[in-house]
Nucleic acid binder design. Structure first.
Lengths: 173, 173
DNA sequence: GATAATTGTTATGGACCATATCAAATAACG
DNA sequence: CGTTATTTGATATGGTCCATAACAATTATC
């Protein structure tokens, strides 16, 4: 919880004048004690998630894809011919919020809305050729620069275990 | 990525008329294929984090504490006599955004700002008696209703492994 | 003692999330 | 058939969180 993304300047703190120290620390230059915080699931989960997203964005800087946009492209590629409601809801995106997101992807010619002939209310979603190409490049970047980092950090078997536990939490918590 | 928190109605979908099936699926009632998405670290991390926060809020409903507020109280208790900048920055909260947060906690008499005599610019943060009492109750709720759920789900050793890997990601990714 | 840096604060804008509402199209049903 | 209810994409809007600029008061630096 409560973790932002700004880089800290971390200039040298002034030395402690050691005047009226009352209980624990007033103006001590020492680092704060995290205490039980570092054992809180939510806290460490959130910090990890922010770091991972941050890294994802760096890896995708050349393609200008956010995690959310990448997940949409992946899902549309795997499920062509579905409409907005279906794609949005399986990603947990509310239909109203999905509109602007698709406007963006469509304006960049990455995907297209096609009026369905079966049900003229709905828009069928498809990747454009450019969208397929961009997604292919994105996958490579993610695999080599992003997910690979997990292997370097945890090792393959731990990586698998982590993903499994996170999925279990996401589905059964 | 891209996971909201709304409950889905999930009323029965109408049966497939099976008309002009072109490539994969137009209007099929089947569930969508997540595909590579379920192997994406960021995706599963985000989903897990949302579920955990959601559960946290339910457990703390009686105390009306968000994860962020809980983390502030924990940190102030562990580090009494620190000022706003120090508490905020170690939590990754930007100073401007920390003001309203403290206004809230202070208005509920959970913590107090005290003008430092050493440096009359800074506000020393302390928990009030009520703040200490509420935090104690919060800790119990979190331990028995929230963190205990992880043990039930993963087992103690897996829980420890998960926390360790997440911390590693948060610190070294 | 003049200048720079720090602290808490306000104002503000952006990104994301959630709800209500609408028109067009379709489904349900008498 | 025709009336009503439901669904789909869309708009408007508000809330929350995150980030930056700027300011007054205070302190540090030189």
């Amino acid at each position: 919880m409560t973790v932002s993304k700004t880089a800290e300047k971390s200039s040298e703190k002034p030395a402690d004048t050691a005047k009226g120290r009352k209980d624990a620390a007033e103006g001590s230059g020492e680092a704060l004690q995290l205490g039980e915080l570092s054992e809180q699931l939510g806290y460490v989960l959130k910090r990890a998630q922010l770091k991972v997203f941050e890294n994802f964005l760096r890896c995708m800087a050349s393609l200008q894809l956010t995690p959310a946009q990448f997940s949409v492209l992946l899902l549309v590629e795997k499920n062509p011919g579905r409409n907005q409601t279906e794609i949005a809801s399986t990603l947990g995106i509310l239909r109203p919020n999905f509109v602007a997101m698709l406007d963006n992807l469509e304006s960049r010619d990455l995907c297209a809305r096609i009026r369905s002939t079966n049900d003229r209310r709905s828009h069928i979603l498809v990747l454009t050729d450019k969208g397929k190409a961009v997604l292919a490049r994105a996958k490579k970047l993610v695999a080599t620069k992003h997910e690979a980092r997990l292997n370097d950090l945890l090792g393959p078997s731990n990586r698998e275990a982590l993903l499994g536990m996170l999925s279990k939490i996401a589905n059964e918590f």
